[in-house]
């Protein structure tokens, strides 16, 4: 037979549950990584147009990217993070490709996968050319499933 005591007891239990949920929600919000301010990742000047030969790859360790100038003169800014598990991919000049030391994924000049296990091409950062200076927008990272001419920036 339901009693007043039992009823009140259940209310206490429910309130305890609410308190627990509140604590869990507060903790979760507290621990969430703060929004990464874009001021930390600005648009950088890579250098003047003439500084980059066609078919060259220039590493920018500070920005964690490579500036690639294709044979036809177009620019691509490639992220140095391997799309497999996140290792840093070096450009191997002698082999003419990016070769990841972790699991042997390989990418060609355009960042397209030439050897698995990487599942997709290297991410890119948008490139702008203003007044003969090549600029890279590190605040934006573009994922792509394949190479497209639209991804290349021409002077």
């Amino acid at each position: 037979m339901p009693t007043r005591r039992g009823f009140l007891g259940r209310i206490w239990l429910a309130l305890g549950g609410v308190a627990l949920v509140e604590y869990a929600w507060l903790s979760f919000e507290f621990l969430r990584p703060p929004r990464e301010s874009t001021a930390v990742l600005p648009i950088v000047n890579a250098g003047p147009l003439e500084a980059f030969d066609a078919g060259s790859v220039t590493a920018f360790p500070d920005g964690k990217y490579y500036l690639v100038r294709l044979e036809d003169g177009g620019f691509l800014a490639l992220s140095r993070t391997c799309t497999h598990l996140g290792c840093t991919v070096p450009w191997v000049e002698e082999e003419g490709r990016f070769l990841c030391p972790c699991h042997a994924s390989a990418f060609d000049l355009r960042g397209v996968v030439s050897n698995p296990p990487a599942p997709r091409p290297l991410d890119t950062h948008p490139v702008r050319i203003e007044n003969g200076i090549v600029k890279v927008d590190l605040g934006r990272t573009v994922r792509r499933e394949s190479f497209d001419r639209d991804q290349v920036t021409y002077a």
Binding site: P61, K64, C82, L85, C87, T88, V89, P90, C100, P101, C102, H103, P117
Partner: peptide
């Protein structure tokens, strides 16, 4: 050194079974 990944790069030994699965 975030700029240089070692070759090979392995997970802790008790996770290497899973990393092997990935291969």
């Amino acid at each position: 050194n975030p700029g240089m990944s070692p070759n090979p790069a392995k997970a802790p030994w008790y996770f290497l079974g899973v990393q092997e699965l990935l291969l």
